[in-house]
Design a protein around this nucleic acid. Sequence first.
DNA 1: GCCGTTTTCGGCCCGACTGTTTTCAGTCG
Length: 599
Amino acid sequence: MDKEITAREAADILSELADLMEIKGDNRYRIRAYQNAARSLSSVSEELKVLVTEDRLMEIKGIGEGLSATIKEIFSTGTAGQLEELKRELPAGLLDMIEIPGVGPKRAHQLYYQLEISGVEDLKKALQEKKVQGLEGFGPKLAQNLREAVARYESFQERMKINEADRLAEKIAEHLEKKSELYHKYKSAGSLRRRKELVKDIDILMVPADPESDGLEKHLRELEGLHKVESGGSSKITLVLENGVKVDFRLVVGDEFPAAFIYFTGSKEHNVKLRQLAKQKGYFLNEYGLFSREDEERLELNQNNNLPEKARGGSASNSDQEKYAESAIYHFFGLDYIEPELREDRGEIEAARKGELPELIDFSNIRGDFHLHTRYSDGAFGIEEMAVAARELGYEYLAITDHSKSLRIASGLSEEQLKEQLEEIRKLQDKISGIKILSGIEVDILPEGGLDFSDEILEQLDLVIASIHSGFNQSRDKITGRLIEACHNPEVDIIGHPRGRLLGRRDAYQVDMSEVIEAAAETGTCLEINASPSRLDLDDLLARQAASRGVRLAISTDAHHTGELIDMKFGVDVARRAWLEKENVLNALPLEELLEFLA
DNA sequence: GCCGTTTTCGGCCCGACTGTTTTCAGTCG
């Protein structure tokens, strides 16, 4: 189990290679081929090792002879000769530099070769010393914009967590509602609508009441927390907030809305695929509609006829009206309606063509929560309060899973305290109706392997989650081994937050998730999608990989407070992005079937 | 570099906006 390159890591290396090729000024279609290959590779569910040894890389779309060889090289050596060569030629700092809005590959190239600027720090200095202005194509305004962009980059490198983005979008919505006469409707789009775990900027699509009026822009200038209006045209307004977040407004007229909604929801890669399809059929697709290439006439799509079956089904996340609007366009291409969470060019277009899209799980399918804490360990409420709050969400069951004794920092339970808790649950169950309280534990996987409680203790409980809370710096082999061993313990039902990451604060520990997924599949152990917006662990890609190997996922909140039980919706977002159906999810089971499973 | 319900060679998505320019390149989504 030596450090082995996964498909995702190989994909990252190809992306880096593509970025450097772009700065170097390589052929743009060659660069695109590398980017396409990286994207396909990042979402394959098979192990890279298998694909390499069986020589099947070329079965992946976008990977031909050349890239197959490069990927094999990456697999066996950990890098590519081309990449090493480019790294010798171009300093690594240039990769950071193209992260700055306004600096792309061309300008990075120019800055490096003409002023020897090889990173963000150099750029900042050169801007201060006004050296940049002299370059061809660099005027005083661009220099000023770059100065501001560098300052923002330094203060705000992180993306927002999805709950933060939701809050911000709500704040903007409140501001808009104050002057509802300015627009007919608006919808948030972009990665927020696709429910990505981290969001860079807020995208809002709007049909203004009067496209000629500057009333909207004026109103937006009064938004609380606004830093400045970065750009404003007749169809786009971009705001920058004090916290560095950009808010893009896209303005369209009513009948442009469906095409604009697809365009502005993205992803970019998904849009590119759709436009390729349009082109093949003799049309072109842009944000204003679908047009014939011959006469450039806009195609009027009847939005209510001949919808594919799945588009008629209800969904909590999209109103039928919007769905119909977008559906007409998808249907024109012979595709079923594609939910926003799937629009990442990870095979959804091919599946939609074959009518093989998943029937995505929905919050209404969730019947309980398995992972929550009470005052027995580090939670803020008692068992009864958590149970009542869970019942209010319409759940059939919840499991009480406090920490085990080794986790002193979270006042983990001793064997005696666990027994007391069991007793309280029994008594409470007689008193409270309408929800089943399962007894459980989040038992620590100890640094040297093994669990914090004996099997004799664990077998008295309804449900056991095993999690790692210590030894994060151990080797990849060691941590992978601890998790695999936990899977093989018959008392363990679920592996909690399998990668141990805290978004923006702590990286995942080193672990070979492919091996853990295989162990989970073999032993019938579930893997958690931890719904806390700070974790969202497993992520969409790994959850999808796990489900494709037959592993059931448990979506749980890890709530320490009654108010956190609703975080479940963020976990469902991940599950939807992972293509999960309710059959893939443990807590979509009715109580009876769940108890059978646990037994 | 990849790919083919037109193609094994000649294509490879589309548009807005800014700042720099006198017609467009660069960047972004």
